[in-house]
Amino acid sequence: MQHRRFERSMRFLACALVLLCMSCGEDREYAPSNCVRSKPSKGSLKVRCTINAEYPLIPITVYLGDFEEDQVMLRDTVDIPIVLYELPVDEYYSVAAEYRSEEDTLIVLRGARISTMSRDYEDATCWSVLGAEVDCRLP
């Protein structure tokens, strides 16, 4: 029984090694025509919020880092449910959407990171931006 288990483990290990070696092959692809060769400096942050008769205008504040760090990147008041902001890449942003009524104030706080990624080709390095999206809609 132990011998059979050992044999199975060895077989599994051999398969894993073969798969690993296959993935180690050299990438000889050339960069596509739409390749962005320099690192982008800005990316998009999409903010969704609830706009209705009770809340026709929503104040939005975007912070660099956590909300408490109080590094305000922008303030805006929106009257549409989706807005896009262009902000520096490779940073984490906190977004506060403020829903004010006569009785109380509800801050919907969300966070996301705008990242970049690159891929090396034979003749160039191509860059792309992974934009961020936060959903500040009311539950």
Partner: peptide
């Protein structure tokens, strides 16, 4: 009172 924050 009257001020709430909704977190993820």
């Amino acid at each position: 009172p009257g001020f709430r924050i909704m977190y993820d």
